Amino acid sequence: MTSLSTHVLDAVAGVPAAGLALVLADSAGTAVATAATDGDGRARLAEDLPPGTYRLLFATGEWFTAAGREAFYPEVVVAFTVAPAGSGGPAHLHVPLLLSPFAYSTYRGS
């Protein structure tokens, strides 16, 4: 089984994106976990994810609105695959998000 975490940074302000709501959903669209980033912009979403395809939804529009800032993307969705055990996939997945009101970037972290 695989664990999952994220770290969201506000690239414009140069600070962690604290309090950003997250939803982890499976391939059927069923919510597996919900969370919000902590003061350091980090969140743990799952400890035991079985193999499959998942979507991590970041509620960026709500977060920017709460901060009184305009933004283009109401949400960011990152789809990713958890590999079966023994196939060489990592035991922990980390999905960072670098965020600005009009752009974002993500990658498979460590």
Rank of each mutant, 00 (worst) to 15 (best):
A71I: 02
P74C: 06
V82H: 04
V77M: 03
G68M: 03
E70M: 10
F72E: 01
V78F: 13
W63F: 02
L56T: 08
A79M: 04
G52F: 10
L57C: 14
P84H: 12
F58M: 11
W63I: 01
T53G: 15
T60I: 11
D40A: 15
R69I: 02
T65M: 11
E75M: 08
L49M: 10
P51W: 11
V82G: 06
G61D: 00
D48A: 15
D48R: 15
T53I: 14
T53S: 15
V77A: 05
G52D: 06
P74L: 06
V82Q: 04
A83M: 12
T81Q: 13
F72A: 08
E62F: 08
G39A: 11
G52Q: 05
G41E: 04
E47D: 12
R44A: 13
T53Y: 11
F64L: 05
V78E: 15
P84L: 14
T65G: 09
G39V: 03
P50I: 13
D40M: 10
A59H: 09
G68P: 01
T53Q: 14
A59C: 09
F72L: 11
A83I: 06
G61W: 00
L57F: 13
Y73N: 02
Y73V: 03
G61F: 00
D40W: 07
L57H: 13
R69M: 02
R42A: 10
G61V: 01
D48C: 14
L57A: 15
P84N: 13
L56V: 07
G52P: 01
F80Q: 08
W63Y: 02
V76N: 00
G39E: 05
A79F: 03
G52H: 06
R69T: 03
P84Q: 14
G41R: 06
D40T: 12
D48H: 15
V76S: 01
G41I: 07
A83K: 12
A66Q: 01
G39Y: 02
Y73H: 07
A43I: 09
T81V: 13
P84T: 13
R42I: 05
P50N: 06
T53C: 12
E70F: 09
T65A: 15
E47V: 09
F58T: 08
L56D: 10
L45F: 11
R42S: 07
A79S: 13
G39S: 07
L45T: 11
R69Q: 04
F72P: 00
R44H: 11
F80W: 07
R55E: 15
V82A: 07
A83Y: 12
G68A: 05
A83C: 09
G41M: 07
W63D: 00
V77P: 02
E70K: 09
P74R: 04
A71M: 03
P51H: 12
F58V: 10
V82D: 05
A79V: 04
L45P: 14
G41A: 09
L49Y: 07
G52T: 05
A59L: 12
A83Q: 14
G68T: 02
A71F: 02
Y54P: 04
E70R: 10
G39N: 04
V82P: 02
E47F: 07
A71G: 07
R69W: 00
G39W: 01
V77D: 04
G68Y: 02
T65I: 10
A71K: 01
T81C: 08
T53W: 12
V78W: 12
V76H: 00
Y73E: 02
G39H: 02
P51F: 14
R44Y: 10
E70Y: 06
V78D: 15
Y73D: 03
R69P: 00
D40Y: 08
P51L: 13
F72Y: 02
W63V: 01
